[in-house]
Design a protein around this nucleic acid. Structure first.
Lengths: 139, 139
DNA sequence: TGATATTACATGTATATACAACTATATTAA
DNA sequence: TTAATATAGTTGTATATACATGTAATATCA
Protein backbone atom coordinates (compact mmCIF):
# COMPACT_ATOMS: atom_id res chain seq x y z
CA UNK A 1 0.00 0.00 0.00
CA UNK A 2 1.50 3.29 -1.03
CA UNK A 3 1.72 6.33 1.21
CA UNK A 4 -1.37 8.54 1.04
CA UNK A 5 -0.87 12.10 -0.15
CA UNK A 6 -1.66 14.89 2.29
CA UNK A 7 -3.89 17.42 0.54
CA UNK A 8 -2.68 20.14 2.82
CA UNK A 9 1.02 19.44 2.34
CA UNK A 10 0.55 19.37 -1.42
CA UNK A 11 -1.23 22.69 -1.34
CA UNK A 12 1.26 24.36 0.98
CA UNK A 13 4.14 23.25 -1.18
CA UNK A 14 2.46 24.53 -4.32
CA UNK A 15 1.62 27.76 -2.56
CA UNK A 16 5.24 28.32 -1.58
CA UNK A 17 6.43 27.71 -5.11
CA UNK A 18 3.78 29.96 -6.61
CA UNK A 19 4.37 32.70 -4.06
CA UNK A 20 8.11 32.52 -4.73
CA UNK A 21 7.47 33.03 -8.42
CA UNK A 22 5.30 36.10 -7.88
CA UNK A 23 7.80 37.48 -5.39
CA UNK A 24 10.59 37.06 -7.91
CA UNK A 25 8.61 39.00 -10.52
CA UNK A 26 7.78 41.73 -8.00
CA UNK A 27 11.25 41.95 -6.49
CA UNK A 28 12.25 45.02 -8.49
CA UNK A 29 9.36 46.93 -6.90
CA UNK A 30 10.35 46.02 -3.34
CA UNK A 31 6.89 44.55 -2.81
CA UNK A 32 5.96 41.01 -1.90
CA UNK A 33 2.90 39.46 -3.48
CA UNK A 34 1.18 39.52 -0.09
CA UNK A 35 1.69 43.28 0.06
CA UNK A 36 0.73 43.77 -3.57
CA UNK A 37 -2.52 41.94 -2.82
CA UNK A 38 -3.35 44.51 -0.18
CA UNK A 39 -2.58 47.42 -2.50
CA UNK A 40 -4.62 45.80 -5.25
CA UNK A 41 -7.61 45.30 -2.96
CA UNK A 42 -7.39 48.94 -1.87
CA UNK A 43 -7.14 50.06 -5.47
CA UNK A 44 -10.56 48.54 -6.14
CA UNK A 45 -12.20 49.13 -2.77
CA UNK A 46 -11.07 52.74 -2.44
CA UNK A 47 -11.24 53.93 1.17
CA UNK A 48 -12.55 51.21 3.45
CA UNK A 49 -12.43 49.96 7.01
CA UNK A 50 -10.05 47.21 8.05
CA UNK A 51 -13.11 45.03 8.52
CA UNK A 52 -14.03 45.30 4.86
CA UNK A 53 -10.47 44.62 3.82
CA UNK A 54 -10.34 41.55 6.03
CA UNK A 55 -13.42 40.14 4.34
CA UNK A 56 -12.04 40.72 0.86
CA UNK A 57 -8.65 39.25 1.66
CA UNK A 58 -10.03 36.54 3.98
CA UNK A 59 -7.52 37.49 6.64
CA UNK A 60 -7.79 37.41 10.39
CA UNK A 61 -8.30 40.80 11.94
CA UNK A 62 -4.99 40.70 13.80
CA UNK A 63 -3.17 39.49 10.71
CA UNK A 64 -4.37 42.43 8.67
CA UNK A 65 -3.32 44.86 11.39
CA UNK A 66 0.18 43.39 11.17
CA UNK A 67 0.25 43.21 7.39
CA UNK A 68 -0.65 46.89 7.12
CA UNK A 69 2.25 47.98 9.27
CA UNK A 70 5.06 47.87 6.69
CA UNK A 71 2.76 49.49 4.12
CA UNK A 72 1.88 52.31 6.52
CA UNK A 73 5.50 52.69 7.61
CA UNK A 74 6.69 52.96 4.01
CA UNK A 75 3.96 55.41 3.07
CA UNK A 76 2.07 53.32 0.51
CA UNK A 77 -1.10 53.22 2.60
CA UNK A 78 -2.68 55.79 4.89
CA UNK A 79 -5.33 55.67 7.62
CA UNK A 80 -7.80 58.29 8.75
CA UNK A 81 -10.32 58.04 11.55
CA UNK A 82 -13.88 57.59 10.36
CA UNK A 83 -16.15 60.52 11.13
CA UNK A 84 -19.10 58.17 11.51
CA UNK A 85 -17.67 55.60 13.91
CA UNK A 86 -14.95 56.30 16.40
CA UNK A 87 -13.72 52.71 16.33
CA UNK A 88 -13.08 52.65 12.60
CA UNK A 89 -10.02 53.60 10.59
CA UNK A 90 -10.49 54.29 6.91
CA UNK A 91 -7.67 52.76 4.91
CA UNK A 92 -6.62 53.93 1.48
CA UNK A 93 -3.70 54.09 -0.91
CA UNK A 94 -1.50 57.16 -0.85
CA UNK A 95 -0.55 58.80 -4.15
CA UNK A 96 2.82 57.06 -3.86
CA UNK A 97 1.08 53.80 -3.03
CA UNK A 98 -1.08 54.06 -6.11
CA UNK A 99 1.98 54.72 -8.26
CA UNK A 100 3.76 51.73 -6.74
CA UNK A 101 0.68 49.62 -7.34
CA UNK A 102 0.70 50.60 -11.04
CA UNK A 103 4.35 49.63 -11.23
CA UNK A 104 3.71 46.35 -9.44
CA UNK A 105 0.69 45.65 -11.61
CA UNK A 106 2.94 45.30 -14.66
CA UNK A 107 5.12 42.76 -12.90
CA UNK A 108 2.07 40.96 -11.52
CA UNK A 109 0.62 40.76 -15.04
CA UNK A 110 3.90 39.31 -16.24
CA UNK A 111 3.79 36.69 -13.47
CA UNK A 112 0.19 35.82 -14.34
CA UNK A 113 1.10 35.41 -18.01
CA UNK A 114 4.15 33.36 -17.14
CA UNK A 115 2.06 30.97 -15.08
CA UNK A 116 -0.61 30.76 -17.75
CA UNK A 117 2.10 29.81 -20.21
CA UNK A 118 3.59 27.15 -17.99
CA UNK A 119 0.47 25.58 -16.53
CA UNK A 120 -2.06 26.19 -19.28
CA UNK A 121 -5.67 27.26 -18.96
CA UNK A 122 -6.94 23.84 -17.93
CA UNK A 123 -4.69 23.45 -14.92
CA UNK A 124 -5.32 27.03 -13.90
CA UNK A 125 -9.05 26.56 -14.19
CA UNK A 126 -8.72 23.45 -12.01
CA UNK A 127 -6.72 25.38 -9.47
CA UNK A 128 -9.12 28.28 -9.32
CA UNK A 129 -12.11 25.98 -9.12
CA UNK A 130 -10.60 23.88 -6.35
CA UNK A 131 -9.49 26.99 -4.46
CA UNK A 132 -12.95 28.47 -4.67
CA UNK A 133 -14.52 25.31 -3.29
CA UNK A 134 -12.01 25.13 -0.46
CA UNK A 135 -12.71 28.72 0.52
CA UNK A 136 -16.43 27.93 0.53
CA UNK A 137 -15.83 25.19 3.12
CA UNK A 138 -15.29 27.99 5.62
CA UNK A 139 -18.94 29.02 5.57
CA UNK B 1 -14.14 44.49 -18.07
CA UNK B 2 -14.18 42.56 -14.80
CA UNK B 3 -11.29 42.40 -12.39
CA UNK B 4 -8.84 39.61 -13.16
CA UNK B 5 -8.36 36.94 -10.50
CA UNK B 6 -4.91 36.62 -8.95
CA UNK B 7 -3.91 32.95 -9.05
CA UNK B 8 -1.64 33.46 -6.09
CA UNK B 9 -4.20 35.20 -3.90
CA UNK B 10 -6.74 32.48 -4.66
CA UNK B 11 -4.27 29.81 -3.70
CA UNK B 12 -3.10 31.52 -0.53
CA UNK B 13 -6.66 32.01 0.62
CA UNK B 14 -7.52 28.38 -0.06
CA UNK B 15 -4.32 27.31 1.68
CA UNK B 16 -5.22 29.27 4.80
CA UNK B 17 -8.69 27.78 4.93
CA UNK B 18 -7.41 24.25 4.37
CA UNK B 19 -4.62 24.66 6.91
CA UNK B 20 -7.11 25.99 9.44
CA UNK B 21 -9.26 22.91 8.96
CA UNK B 22 -6.35 20.51 9.51
CA UNK B 23 -5.19 22.52 12.52
CA UNK B 24 -8.66 22.31 14.03
CA UNK B 25 -8.66 18.54 13.64
CA UNK B 26 -5.16 18.27 15.12
CA UNK B 27 -5.74 20.72 17.95
CA UNK B 28 -6.33 18.05 20.57
CA UNK B 29 -2.82 16.71 19.90
CA UNK B 30 -1.14 20.10 20.35
CA UNK B 31 0.37 19.74 16.86
CA UNK B 32 -0.11 22.00 13.88
CA UNK B 33 -0.39 20.46 10.45
CA UNK B 34 3.00 21.93 9.55
CA UNK B 35 4.54 20.07 12.48
CA UNK B 36 2.61 16.90 11.76
CA UNK B 37 4.00 17.01 8.22
CA UNK B 38 7.52 16.93 9.60
CA UNK B 39 6.74 14.03 11.91
CA UNK B 40 5.06 12.19 9.07
CA UNK B 41 8.02 12.69 6.76
CA UNK B 42 10.36 11.40 9.47
CA UNK B 43 8.11 8.42 10.09
CA UNK B 44 8.69 7.31 6.49
CA UNK B 45 12.26 8.53 6.00
CA UNK B 46 13.56 7.14 9.29
CA UNK B 47 16.82 8.82 10.31
CA UNK B 48 17.91 11.36 7.73
CA UNK B 49 19.90 14.55 7.31
CA UNK B 50 18.18 17.92 7.28
CA UNK B 51 19.10 18.13 3.60
CA UNK B 52 17.01 15.08 2.79
CA UNK B 53 14.13 16.37 4.83
CA UNK B 54 14.29 19.73 3.05
CA UNK B 55 13.99 18.00 -0.29
CA UNK B 56 11.01 15.93 0.78
CA UNK B 57 9.20 18.86 2.36
CA UNK B 58 10.37 21.38 -0.27
CA UNK B 59 11.45 23.75 2.47
CA UNK B 60 14.30 26.24 2.59
CA UNK B 61 17.19 25.13 4.72
CA UNK B 62 16.80 27.93 7.23
CA UNK B 63 13.06 27.33 7.41
CA UNK B 64 13.53 23.69 8.31
CA UNK B 65 16.08 24.60 10.98
CA UNK B 66 13.47 26.87 12.54
CA UNK B 67 10.60 24.43 12.09
CA UNK B 68 12.53 21.70 13.88
CA UNK B 69 13.11 23.82 16.96
CA UNK B 70 9.72 23.41 18.68
CA UNK B 71 9.77 19.69 17.85
CA UNK B 72 13.25 19.26 19.35
CA UNK B 73 12.36 21.40 22.35
CA UNK B 74 9.23 19.35 23.06
CA UNK B 75 11.08 16.06 22.63
CA UNK B 76 9.25 14.69 19.58
CA UNK B 77 12.34 14.74 17.38
CA UNK B 78 15.99 14.10 18.19
CA UNK B 79 19.28 14.83 16.41
CA UNK B 80 22.58 12.98 16.47
CA UNK B 81 25.80 13.89 14.69
CA UNK B 82 26.55 11.73 11.68
CA UNK B 83 29.61 9.55 12.06
CA UNK B 84 30.31 9.83 8.35
CA UNK B 85 30.18 13.60 7.86
CA UNK B 86 30.90 16.11 10.58
CA UNK B 87 28.58 18.66 9.02
CA UNK B 88 25.53 16.46 9.13
CA UNK B 89 22.92 15.96 11.82
CA UNK B 90 20.78 12.85 11.62
CA UNK B 91 17.18 13.64 12.49
CA UNK B 92 14.67 11.11 13.72
CA UNK B 93 11.50 10.70 15.74
CA UNK B 94 11.81 9.94 19.42
CA UNK B 95 9.65 7.18 20.92
CA UNK B 96 7.35 9.91 22.23
CA UNK B 97 7.37 11.60 18.83
CA UNK B 98 6.33 8.39 17.14
CA UNK B 99 3.51 7.92 19.63
CA UNK B 100 2.35 11.49 19.05
CA UNK B 101 2.53 10.93 15.32
CA UNK B 102 0.27 7.87 15.64
CA UNK B 103 -2.18 9.95 17.64
CA UNK B 104 -2.03 12.78 15.12
CA UNK B 105 -2.39 10.36 12.24
CA UNK B 106 -5.93 9.51 13.35
CA UNK B 107 -6.89 13.16 13.40
CA UNK B 108 -5.16 13.78 10.08
CA UNK B 109 -7.06 10.86 8.56
CA UNK B 110 -10.28 12.37 9.86
CA UNK B 111 -9.38 15.71 8.26
CA UNK B 112 -8.56 14.01 4.97
CA UNK B 113 -11.91 12.18 5.02
CA UNK B 114 -13.77 15.33 5.93
CA UNK B 115 -12.25 17.17 3.00
CA UNK B 116 -12.94 14.29 0.64
CA UNK B 117 -16.55 14.40 1.75
CA UNK B 118 -16.89 18.12 1.24
CA UNK B 119 -14.94 18.61 -1.95
CA UNK B 120 -15.36 15.26 -3.64
CA UNK B 121 -12.82 13.22 -5.54
CA UNK B 122 -12.96 15.36 -8.67
CA UNK B 123 -12.08 18.63 -7.01
CA UNK B 124 -9.39 16.94 -4.95
CA UNK B 125 -7.90 15.32 -8.01
CA UNK B 126 -7.89 18.76 -9.66
CA UNK B 127 -6.19 20.25 -6.66
CA UNK B 128 -3.53 17.58 -6.44
CA UNK B 129 -2.90 17.73 -10.17
CA UNK B 130 -2.59 21.50 -10.21
CA UNK B 131 -0.38 21.46 -7.12
CA UNK B 132 1.92 18.91 -8.68
CA UNK B 133 2.29 20.96 -11.82
CA UNK B 134 3.00 24.11 -9.84
CA UNK B 135 5.70 22.37 -7.84
CA UNK B 136 7.25 21.16 -11.09
CA UNK B 137 7.59 24.78 -12.25
CA UNK B 138 10.41 25.08 -9.74
CA UNK B 139 12.70 22.77 -11.73
C1' DT C 1 -30.61 56.31 31.17
C1' DG C 2 -27.44 53.07 32.66
C1' DA C 3 -25.70 48.40 32.58
C1' DT C 4 -24.47 44.95 29.24
C1' DA C 5 -23.10 43.24 25.04
C1' DT C 6 -21.05 43.89 20.64
C1' DT C 7 -17.85 45.71 17.41
C1' DA C 8 -13.27 47.55 15.67
C1' DC C 9 -8.89 47.45 16.27
C1' DA C 10 -4.29 46.62 18.91
C1' DT C 11 -1.01 43.84 21.45
C1' DG C 12 1.28 39.55 23.38
C1' DT C 13 2.98 35.37 22.04
C1' DA C 14 4.15 31.73 19.01
C1' DT C 15 5.01 29.36 14.63
C1' DA C 16 6.06 29.50 9.48
C1' DT C 17 8.66 31.28 5.95
C1' DA C 18 12.53 33.40 3.21
C1' DC C 19 16.91 35.76 2.10
C1' DA C 20 21.46 37.00 3.36
C1' DA C 21 25.40 36.33 5.86
C1' DC C 22 28.08 33.36 8.81
C1' DT C 23 30.62 29.00 10.70
C1' DA C 24 32.44 24.62 10.33
C1' DT C 25 33.52 20.71 7.71
C1' DA C 26 34.50 18.31 3.51
C1' DT C 27 35.96 18.17 -1.36
C1' DT C 28 38.59 19.57 -5.32
C1' DA C 29 42.25 21.21 -7.76
C1' DA C 30 46.72 23.44 -8.44
C1' DT D 1 49.60 19.40 0.59
C1' DT D 2 47.67 23.66 0.63
C1' DA D 3 44.45 26.95 -1.33
C1' DA D 4 40.03 27.46 -3.28
C1' DT D 5 35.44 25.84 -3.46
C1' DA D 6 31.36 23.50 -2.12
C1' DT D 7 28.26 21.69 1.32
C1' DA D 8 25.52 21.36 5.89
C1' DG D 9 23.67 23.78 9.08
C1' DT D 10 22.91 28.28 12.08
C1' DT D 11 21.78 33.02 12.96
C1' DG D 12 20.09 37.83 11.90
C1' DT D 13 16.35 40.14 10.19
C1' DA D 14 11.90 40.73 8.29
C1' DT D 15 7.20 39.53 6.91
C1' DA D 16 2.96 36.44 7.26
C1' DT D 17 -0.14 34.20 10.01
C1' DA D 18 -3.21 32.85 13.99
C1' DC D 19 -5.17 32.66 18.67
C1' DA D 20 -6.02 34.84 22.96
C1' DT D 21 -6.53 38.88 25.33
C1' DG D 22 -6.99 43.85 26.00
C1' DT D 23 -9.01 48.57 25.00
C1' DA D 24 -12.04 51.85 23.37
C1' DA D 25 -16.19 53.04 21.22
C1' DT D 26 -20.84 51.91 19.78
C1' DA D 27 -25.22 49.55 20.16
C1' DT D 28 -28.80 47.24 22.71
C1' DC D 29 -31.98 46.58 26.12
C1' DA D 30 -34.05 46.46 30.67
Amino acid sequence: MSVQPCYNLAMRQADRVLTGLYNAYLSETGLKITQFSVLRALRYLKACSQKELEKVLLLEQATLTRNLQPLLRDGWVKREPSTEDGRVWLISLTTEGFALFKQGEKRWQAAQKKIEGILGQDTLAQLMDASEQIVKMRD
